[in-house]
Amino acid sequence: MKCNRLVDAGRRQFLRGGLVATAGAAAGTMMPERAEAQSALARVSYPANRLANIADLTENEPLDVAYPDERSPGVLLKLGQAVEGGVGPDGDIVGYSVLCPHKGWFLIYNSDDRSFNCPGHYSRFDAEAGGQQIWGHATNNLPQFVLRVDGEGEIYAEGVDELIFGRLSNTL
């Protein structure tokens, strides 16, 4: 029940802040003006979860992880060269959900061209281009984890930039 309440609270916040232009329509006319000025969280609050240590990663070999919870499978990848959104000393570590944002099939990583491929309907996503759908049926690019690396090489995930398949809130 606690979980449900959190989700519902988050959803209301979405309505107020997630769509910036909704303020008038969604915030409701009952709210006093001062209340509108209060900050509302536009997005869900993400846990900062340790996923792995840099030492656990081998270049171009996906490491299975889960984020924001154990029911949301993903991978960490060390690509060997800096990419947009990459973290770590080489700017080359990225993390993605591996559920295809079309129909939720498990994506398969192809190390030859560093792409995620969906065996269900042939969509594919570029691990080196922010999870951009190279070709396919999904209407969002692959959800990417917001990562942070601390001084010990510990890799933390602290957010996700797209809606993960199978959940109407990234945190359940």
Binding site: V7, G10, R11, F14, L15, G18, R43, V44, E84, G85, A129, G130, G131, Q132, N140, N141, Q144, V160, D161, E162, L163, L168, S169, N170
Partner: peptide, 13 residues
């Protein structure tokens, strides 16, 4: 940079 909607929840029907 790859386009992301930054939407992480949706209203439930």
């Amino acid at each position: 940079m790859t386009y992301k909607r930054q939407v992480d929840r949706l209203p439930i029907i």
